[in-house]
Design a protein around this nucleic acid. Structure first.
Lengths: 193, 193
DNA sequence: CGTCGAATTGATGTCATTCAACTACAGTGG
DNA sequence: CCACTGTAGTTGAATGACATCAATTCGACG
């Protein structure tokens, strides 16, 4: 159970505590193409990717997909808006590969916050990090050229640059796949000259 | 002291606790056009707007301003990335009107977290809300047309639609002021017909 | 009334999108 | 083993949306 390893490594949670928390966790396998969350459902879990790869995306009024986030191994992903406000989600979360996912329920979080001061600060750390991520994304969308955004994508997700199809990266960056293709060509030429 | 009112109203913090926390707070007046934070400085505070109006923005490589957030009365604003990681900020925070700002130091937050379980959940609430805001912004930037973004700006900041100059709204939306002007014209025509 | 910044408008330019054609490659079934 | 199919990626041409530039109007304020 990779998530519990993660907990023990990062938080030095005792074995007894781990045992007490286990009932609030579920490990679930998802096949490639299956959904962790669908638009219109209320999100119930924070998902931790033990193994595999997952994307979260929205569909716009024209039926176009816009990728909000990727979550490779050891990342968290979730629609916090939906969990927090018990609203229907606007997003899909879908497995891009066969994946093993840890479903972290609200009860788990409540219990863990209660038991462990360390978990409290860890939870805050996660929230803070999420904010940094999102703020950085906004910064890039507002201030940076497509080229810069692509370069910083490769920094953020180096493993993914080769693994996921290019049209998904384009969707994440907010451009048409053809445009990304042209940018990559330019970058190649720059690199040579 | 409006922020303390806010605390007492939202958190039923006792008077004694308020007294204990006061030393970690500063109220400061900022004149229109003065800076709460400059690019390159490390942000030390969460700012709470007792009264007035404030904007946070970045300057891109061409010298263009991009507004990340507005904070009217009773809003919080800060560069959490800078506070949290003790990094130099990429942002400016500037008063758009003469403003009264509460400077909330990290010591304040640490103390309050220690003293009050209620403050802990309040703090989490703030972080969650910030995430919702940011995620919504990203959603709009990726999925929505300029027109939709403008409409949802007016929903989010109804007071500001008239108060702040249009070119700032354009900057917030990520377009040229001329483009926003044309969109507004279209909206007017639609409304009539 | 004159000045300055903001907003509008029109003309033009630029960049990304769209559409379509074509290549490359993987998987399928004869 | 080879055609058949579908998906991804590239490329070119046409289109469209927004940016830019310049001129003008509007409105607040001294």
């Amino acid at each position: 159970m990779y998530f519990l390893e993660y907990l023990q490594r990062n938080l030095s949670v005792s074995k007894e505590d781990v045992e007490r928390l286990k009932p609030y966790l579920t490990e679930k396998k998802y096949e490639k193409g299956s959904y962790l969350l669908r638009e219109g459902e209320v999100c119930e879990y924070i998902f931790y990717v033990n193994h595999g790869l997952v994307k979260m995306y929205a569909i716009d009024e024209f039926g176009k997909e816009h990728i909000i986030q990727f979550a490779p191994e050891a990342w968290f992903i979730s629609d916090r808006a939906s969990i927090y406000k018990k609203e229907k989600s606007k997003y899909f979360i879908e497995a891009l590969e066969d994946s093993s996912i840890m479903l972290i329920s609200e009860q788990f979080i409540a219990k863990a916050l209660e038991i462990s001061a360390e978990y409290r600060s860890h939870n805050e750390h996660l929230l803070q990090n999420h904010i940094l991520q999102l703020q950085n994304r906004i910064h890039l969308l507002l201030c940076a050229s497509l080229e810069q955004r692509y370069l910083s994508f490769m920094e953020l997700y180096p493993e993914l640059t080769l693994k996921v199809p290019q049209w998904m990266i384009a969707s994440y960056l907010g451009v048409a796949p053809e445009s990304l293709s042209r940018i990559r060509k330019e970058l190649k030429n720059k690199g040579q000259s």
